[in-house]
Structures are given as C-alpha cells and as structure tokens.
C-alpha cells in the first residue's frame, strides 16, 4: 500500500533579512487531512515560515515541496492552496460577493462556481443578506468572516491560516473553530498559526513550537505533555502562612510555587502516586481547598518559548 506524500514538506529551510536569521533550519511535513498549528511568540518566524510555504518568499537554503493533486512538486499551485494572511485587508468599496468571486477566480475557479460557493459560505456564516453590500459597511467581525471565506472559497487542498482567531470575540472564535474542523473533515489540510492556546489545544492534531526561527518542540499535545514530563497540578488553599519548602522534598513533586499568602501550586510528575503525597501534605498543612488540573498547552508553550526576546528586525518582512 502506497503512503500519500506530505501535502507540504519543508526541509531545513533558512531565511535571513539582513543580519537577522528569521528562520533557521526548520524541517516539517504536513500530512494530508491534518490540522497543524505553529506556535511561537511574535517575531519567532512563523509568518516568514508560512510565506515560504506559500512560495511568496524563497528560502535562502533548504527546500519546500508540495504534494497536491497527486503530484509532488516544488512549485506551489495557488488553485489548490488557500491563504488567510495575518495582515488582512479588503477592497473596501467592492461588494461582498464580487470580492469573493474575484479572489476565487484569481485562484482558478470558474465564475459561476465561484458565485455558487460564495453564496453557500455567506449563507453558512449568516451574511447572505449582505452579499451586495460594500465591504466597508460590514462590522470588523463580519469583515473577518469574509476574509476567511475568501481564503477557502475555492475549496483548497491546503489551507494556510495565519492567526485566524485574532480579533474575534469568543462566539466567533468558536464558530471559526467549527469551520476549520469542517474543512478538515471535508479533506482540506490545515496549517495555522495562533496565540490562542486553548483553541489550538482543542483543534490541532499536531503542534510545532517555534522559538527564534527554530523548532523548539513538535508533536501532538499529548506527546508534548509526555515529552515535557508534565503531569497534574495541585492547587491548594491553606490556612495561615505555613512554610511550604518541605513540599519540594516529597516524592513525585516537580515544582512548588507560592501564589499570594494562602495559595500553593504543586506540579507533580506524571504517574506519581497521589495518596502518599496527599497524606504527607495533610500531616503538615491545614488544607481548606484542593483542586487538580492538567498541565495545558499554554504551560508547555510558556515553558518552551518563554523568556525569549523578539528578534530585532524580524518585523521587516513579517
């Protein structure tokens, strides 16, 4: 049985802008039908990476290959790729449907098909009655919906979405979340970058952490948790202001952090036995409240890429 080639494969790609190395030897392969999320701080090189993935920038070194339409090539086919850029703009004086049909036609779609698809998506996103209105008359949220539609209206095999959730309210974030899942379920491979960790955690099949232009971690969220040894976090509220230094000596405790005067966060190792730990805590502390929570993607992200300063000059082409 033959294995389908990656939809997108970057091999040791590098890109410099003057003295700044924006992307430094990143390798990744996007498998058909998956949702891959790129995470990293501002200036980490995500947008540059995506622009190289789209063929808008050529890497100084390394290769970019595409496996779209059953053909492996090093030339991107814009009719099979959709792109939602981070820097988004609209032709403000153009009606909504005309705008969508124009971009669909640019990406090789026949105009009747483009009109039909545009109307379908506008209906789906509750904008059918605004199809003839100029874009400038739409609210910011609705403009973002139109921009999202324009990136996928031509039914791409690969959708590259740069910060798709930025600027959206929680309801629209949930809407976009379900739309991206629908895309994936319909066979579109999705690569996205985002800062909303809780959304990425719910959405992404795989995550790649980018730090200073390099890959700092990659895998499913579960794999990242395992790799970082992250287990459970105990959140205690205690009476008084007791000395909690003894907690770090207990078996299975990775770290202890005091939050205010009466709260303590204890991170325990994965698979650590809880009963003896709780018993030891109960002997020394007067616990008033106890909660547990799993270490989140946000925690892994902060631990992985935290403290890294934004490389100067990356915004030059970002």
């Amino acid at each position: 049985m033959s294995v389908a080639p990656p939809v997108l494969a970057l091999e040791a790609v590098e890109k410099r802008f003057g003295d700044v190395r924006a992307v430094d030897g990143v390798t990744l392969a996007v498998q058909p039908g998956e949702i891959l999320a790129l995470l990293g701080p501002n200036g980490a090189g995500k947008t540059t990476l995506l622009r190289m993935a789209l063929g808008m920038l050529r890497p100084d070194r390394g290769t970019v290959r595409y496996g779209l339409g059953g053909v492996v090539t090093d030339r991107p086919d814009p009719t099979r790729i959709g792109y939602l850029p981070e820097e988004r703009g609209l032709y403000q004086d153009v009606p909504v449907r005309r705008y969508l049909v124009y971009f669909a036609a640019l990406r090789g779609m026949r105009r009747p098909d483009a009109r039909r698809e545009a109307d379908r998506w506008l209906e789906r996103l509750g904008l059918a009655d605004r199809a003839g209105d100029e874009l400038r008359s739409l609210s910011k949220g609705n403009q973002q919906k139109v921009q999202f539609i324009s990136s996928i209206v031509h039914r791409p095999e690969l959708a590259i979405l740069d910060e798709p959730f930025s600027g959206l309210d929680p309801l629209n974030q949930d809407l976009f979340l379900s739309l991206i899942r629908e895309l994936r379920d319909a066979g579109t491979t999705v690569v996205l970058s985002a800062h909303q960790m809780q959304l990425v955690e719910r959405l992404a099949d795989r995550v790649i952490l980018i730090r200073a232009g390099r890959t700092a971690g990659a895998g499913t969220v579960e794999e990242l948790r395992e790799r970082w040894g992250a287990g459970t976090r105990l959140l205690l509220r205690v009476d008084g202001e007791p000395d909690v230094a003894f907690l770090e000596t207990l078996t299975g405790v990775r770290s202890v952090r005091r939050v205010g005067t009466d709260r303590v966060e204890i991170e325990i190792e994965r698979d650590a036995a809880l009963s003896p730990l709780l018993e030891a805590i109960g002997r020394r502390l007067d616990v008033r409240d106890l909660r547990t929570e799993t270490v989140t993607l946000h925690d892994i992200y902060v631990r992985t890429v935290g403290g890294v300063e934004e490389p100067a000059g990356e915004e030059v082409i970002a």
């Binding site: 622009r51 789209l54 808008m56 814009p78 790729i81 792109y83 850029p85 820097e87 988004r88 703009g89 609209l90 032709y91 403000q92 971009f103 640019l106 990406r107 921009q147 324009s150 990136s151």
Partner: peptide
Amino acid sequence: EKQNRLAEQVISAI
C-alpha cells in the same frame, strides 16, 4: 493596496 494590506492575498493567488 499596500496600505489596505491586500498585497499578501493577491500575491498568494497570482
């Protein structure tokens, strides 16, 4: 087009 941040959308298509 540059000020309206349209360039990337167009360049990704053609």
